[in-house]
Design a protein around this nucleic acid. Sequence first.
DNA 1: ACCTGAACACCGTTCAAGT
DNA 2: ACCTGAACACCGTTCAAGT
Lengths: 183, 183
Amino acid sequence: MPTPPKTSPARLVEIGLRLVTEGGVEAVTVAAVAKQAGVKGPSIYKHFTDREALLTAIEIAVLDQLQAALQRAGGETARERLFAMAHAYRAFVIAAPWRYGILYRANASGGAALAEIYRAAIRPIFAAMSEAGVAEARLLVVARTLAPFLHGFLTMEIAQAFRLGGDLDASFSAALEIILREV
Amino acid sequence: MPTPPKTSPARLVEIGLRLVTEGGVEAVTVAAVAKQAGVKGPSIYKHFTDREALLTAIEIAVLDQLQAALQRAGGETARERLFAMAHAYRAFVIAAPWRYGILYRANASGGAALAEIYRAAIRPIFAAMSEAGVAEARLLVVARTLAPFLHGFLTMEIAQAFRLGGDLDASFSAALEIILREV
DNA sequence: ACCTGAACACCGTTCAAGT
DNA sequence: ACCTGAACACCGTTCAAGT
C-alpha cells in the first residue's frame, strides 16, 4: 500500500535554494533539507540519487534566477542594455553572495546539459552584445573576455580580495569600458 | 618528560600541498595529512589550531609557487614579459587544476594578512604592467580588469565551462589583447 | 511508492592520559 | 612538549522493514 509523498523534488529544491542563499553550499545538508521538508534524511534519496544531484538542481534554479535578473535589466539602446546587464549581474551576486557559491563548482557533475543551462542564463548578455554591434567574428572572443571577467570579479569581490582601496564601483565600470570598447 | 616531535608545520604543509595537488581541497583531510606524517589525527592540532589554519598555510604555499612561476616568465620587452606572465599564470593552473582550487575560497579566513600575500603573488604582473607603460592613473583599473579575468577564465576552464568550441588558446590571447590594449 | 530507524564509514574536534 | 586512544557530534549513504 503506497504511502502518500510528504515532499517533492521541486519542494526540496526550493528549500535548498533558501539554505544556500542563507548559508552557502555547506549549509545544504541532506539532513537540513530533509528536516525543513518534514521528512527524515534517507527520504531525500527517493527524490534525488545523491546530494550532488540535489546541488545540481539548486544550481539550475540559481541560473534561472540569474537569467531573470539579466532580462529585467533595461536600457534605451542595446549598448545601454548591455552595460545594465553587467551591472545587474553584479547586483545579483552582491545581493546574495552565498547563493553565487553554488555556481562554477570545481566538481561540476552536470556535464554538457548543465553547460547549456549556463549558456542560456547569460544569453541575454550576448544577445545584447550582438545587437549592440559587436562583429560576428568578434562575438566569441568578447564573450570569452566578459564572462570570465564578470565571474572572476564577483568571486574576488565576495572573497574580499580587493583591498587596494579606490572606488570599486568605478573600477567595475572602467573595466567594462575596456572590455566592451568595440561596442 | 617531553616527547620528541614526529612532524612539523612545514612538513604538514608539504604533505597538504601534495594532497591538494592530487585530489583537491576535499582530499586534504586531517586524518589523511596525519597518516602521511606518521602521526594520528589529533596530533595535527598541536601544530595548527584547526583544519582551516592548515588550509590557509597550504594556500600561502601555493601562492608562493604561483609567484615563482610568474617570475620565471621571461620576455625581451616589458610588454612581452607581461603577456608571458599571463600565459604562465594559465600554464600554472592547467598544470595542476586541483591545486588552484585552494585559492580564493569563499570562506577566506586569512583576512588582511592573506590579502597581502595574494598581492605579492601577482605583483610581478603589475610590475611588468607598470614597466610596459601603463599610466599610473590607469594601473589600478587595468589590474582590476586583468586579475579577475585571469582568475575567472581559469576557474571556468577548469570547470570545463567553455563548450562553444573554437580555439581556447586563441581566445585567451585575444582577450589579453583587449584588456591590455593600452600597453 | 514513499517513509523510517538502524547501521556504516567517514569527518573535524576535544580531552584526559601517557611519555 | 608532543603524541595517543577514546569519545562526541556530525556527515552522506545503504538497506531492510513498515505502510
